[in-house]
């Protein structure tokens, strides 16, 4: 008796698996069919089910991508602009027309509810290569602004002309991801000597170097 039951069960599974290939049935619907037959689940190799279902899911996933709406080219950041173009852009007339002599963050205003802005800016403006916010930060909103140690004109806008410190994101409104990139790029540029800065005074004790001198 149990043998015939098993046989029926296996046939059922075969039939079912064929169904899976042809139709796109979700993983969640699988156990229902089996439960109905009251077959011992122990004799069904679970791996087979999962592998099949995975194939189904993958197929579904690819189909979804095809169905996706076309991305607004203004929000598409999947192919970033090379640095050379960014450097040329910062020296160009178009940039001058857009920003004038002010730094790029000057006229950016953060969106927030209530009177006070949250302490930190948002984690990132760009998710999986597409702008995911209505008010992207001053660097994310312009696709021609690329942070790089050689892009000195851009980096210098984020260094205070008053005391030479790196400006806070509270002031510039840059998102956390871009701010970290900025810190790294400025450090690299300083290390390479592309950005000059003042160094603290080092006092020498001449006695250390020449004992007889006063």
């Amino acid at each position: 008796m149990s043998f015939t039951r098993n046989l029926i069960c296996k046939l059922q599974i075969q039939k079912f698996s064929q169904n899976i290939f042809t139709s796109s049935i979700r993983l969640g619907t699988l156990p229902h069919c089996l439960h109905f037959q009251q077959t011992p689940l122990s004799c069904i190799p679970p791996q087979r089910q999962f592998s099949l279902s995975r194939i189904c899911c993958e197929e579904e996933g690819t189909e979804e991508n095809k169905d996706e709406k076309p991305v607004d080219p203004a929000k598409d950041r999947r192919n970033p602009v090379p640095v050379e173009i960014s450097i040329r852009y910062l020296a160009s007339e178009a940039y001058q027309k857009c920003y004038g002599d002010e730094p790029v963050w000057k006229y950016y205003r953060r969106n927030h509810k209530g009177m006070f802005a949250p302490k930190k800016t948002r984690k990132t403006c760009i998710r999986s290569g597409i702008i995911a916010t209505g008010n992207p930060c001053p660097i994310c909103r312009d696709e021609y602004l690329i942070i790089h140690p050689y892009n000195i004109k851009l980096l210098e806008q984020f260094i205070s002309p008053v005391n030479g410190e790196i400006l806070s994101y509270m002031k510039t409104g840059v998102c956390q991801k871009q701010h970290l990139k900025l810190l790294v790029a400025i450090t690299q540029a300083k290390n390479k000597g592309l950005i000059t800065f003042d160094l603290p005074f080092r006092e020498y004790n001449y006695k250390d170097y020449f004992p007889t001198s006063v």
Binding site: K192, G193, L199
Partner: peptide, 21 residues
């Protein structure tokens, strides 16, 4: 610092950043 490598140092000299160097 990388700025003391030969090419970087030369670029700095050409920019007349002697005091910084």
């Amino acid at each position: 610092p990388d700025m003391f490598e030969e090419e970087n140092l030369k670029a700095l000299c050409d920019r007349k950043e002697y005091v910084f160097i």
